[in-house]
Design a protein around this nucleic acid. Sequence first.
RNA 1: GGGGAUGUAGCUCAAUUGGUUAGAGUACCGGACUGUCGAUCCGGAUGUUGCGGGUUCGAGUCCCGUCAUCCUCGCCA
Length: 601
Amino acid sequence: MLRTHTCGELRAANDGERVTLCGWVQNRRDHGGLLFLDLRDRYGVTQVVTEPEFPEAGAAADRVRLEWVVRGTGVVRTRPDANRNKDRSTGQIEVVLEEFEVLSASAPLPVAVTGEERSSEELGLRYRYLEMRRPEVRNALETRARMNQIIREHMIAQAFVEVETPILLRSTPEGARDYLVPSRVHPGSFYALPQSPQILKQILMVGGMDRYWQIARCFRDEDLRADRQPEFTQLDIEMSFVEQDDVLEVVESLVVRLVREIAGVEIPSSVRRMPYAEAVARYGTDKPDLRFGLPVVDVTEILQDCAFGVFSGAAKAGGRIRAIALGPEHPLSRKKLDALPAAVADRGARGVAWVRIKAEGWSGAAAKHLTDAEQSGLTEALGLQEGGIALFLAGPSEVVVPASGDLRVHLGKLFELRDPARYELLWVVDFPLFAWNEDEQRLDAAHHPFTAPLPEDVPLLDSAPKSVRALAYDLVLNGEEVAGGSIRIHQHDVQSRVFELLGIGADEAQQRFGFFLEALRYGAPPHGGCASGLDRLAASLLGLEQIRDVIAFPKTTSAADLMSGAPSTVDPAQLVELSLQLDVASPAETGNEPGDGIRSA
RNA sequence: GGGGAUGUAGCUCAAUUGGUUAGAGUACCGGACUGUCGAUCCGGAUGUUGCGGGUUCGAGUCCCGUCAUCCUCGCCA
């Protein structure tokens, strides 16, 4: 090693030892006859100092600038009390330089490596290796590594076998857009990158692997968000001869442990379960944030004949009226009330009606239309208190239900009810098996087409498929989905029936999933599993809103890698080799290329 | 594909109603200084105001287009 110690480990106990440190120059304080350098590496920061007694080392150190990589040798000296730095673990000592060499100089920096001000995200991505020197990014990556270690221990201890599945595999339509890879030896044919190893892990069960796990990279060519990258990482699990609870227990015990060991918060080891229907009814979403209350109440029955046209009109048209009650501890000014509709406009909700509950009478546009019976009905249903407010959304169910969820979350933010130190886990279970696709007038798989129906709902497959519930489950952490899975169909005939309901004919199923359906015919064990998005989970545990910082080399919202310049054009010879011909003007002709503006800087 | 925000020195930002030479901090370069830890002090250099077009006597500022980044709707079985 070029060093005897790291920059984070010397203490007063090392006084008098001769040591060698390597690191980046984080700061430089030149006093003329005396020069202080702060040397930084992954482990910490240590102050080194020059003294006139060693002029050669002093002259060499004098040349260095920020972020140069240097190596210094000298004796550890305990600092006088007045000169100790209490904010730093190595602050009791310093190293008096006897020898000093520059290992690597640095050009002036294009991004801020130290200090509280962080450079723009664009520059941070372009110069990711410099951002990575910042503690917040380094800490996130170290946290990911610890999570992986905990996961590995947990899975191995429970007899799971880690199996790698291919990155190049067959495109199986449905779901997200595939990333495609052209085949050279099979002109006109393509591999797809996995959206998840779903079919493969089920086939592993048919192969008798019994308990599989993998930290798997997944790829989906869809538009991005703060919590979505084109490639992301899942903890993938599949188990044979299990019932739903068996899968949930494996996953929840792991996530509870991660919350404890990563976030340092102790939470109950048994995670509560809530049917999908209840989650949607009470919280307007299938992933409720249970760190705060403010439940949504359906008041359609109470207000359906109301003199207020907005309410009765919605009810008569078959819609719903949903309300959230605010106690006197959550006051809203007229200005804030007027800003509420903007919070639900995304969902197509037209407005938010409100009434103030006062001793002398209710006020608000809707108040004067409410009969005494309606007022007492609302008071009881919503638990209204004097000094409080009732908020109402009215309209078609498919608008008002999700809008009520958005409104609740908006209020949670507004009143700062989302305690960042709290971790509320919840299993949402009994999801519907199918979702109605309005555009194409057919059923879609709500989870995926291999999800098993609830046994007691199987008869409904023929009579009322839309009301069939599934053995599917999502793990929700503070209002974010961090894992999801299902018990799978292991019977060939049931699988065929589901495909039929999804409008996938026998021929088409054969063409798309033939190899999988064939596998189900050769003794498939009952099985089920789960997958957890580790990027989001890591971000949640670190209290981050976006996942880029828990990924070493993330991409932009247009799926570009600003550091390497991917995606890029390729040599025409490569296209010829792949039997590909482009039908678009090349970027060279349009003069545009991703990252252009910044790379030319 | 739609909506919104942002783009000024290497970096973080400022610049009044459209007004004449676009500033500050920091980094960088030079100098002073023996106890700093955001060192301090003195001096210096640094600009295609993202790009293209337009309006105007005059544009960082107004208009149109475009590119990039971020947020978001659609999308993500």
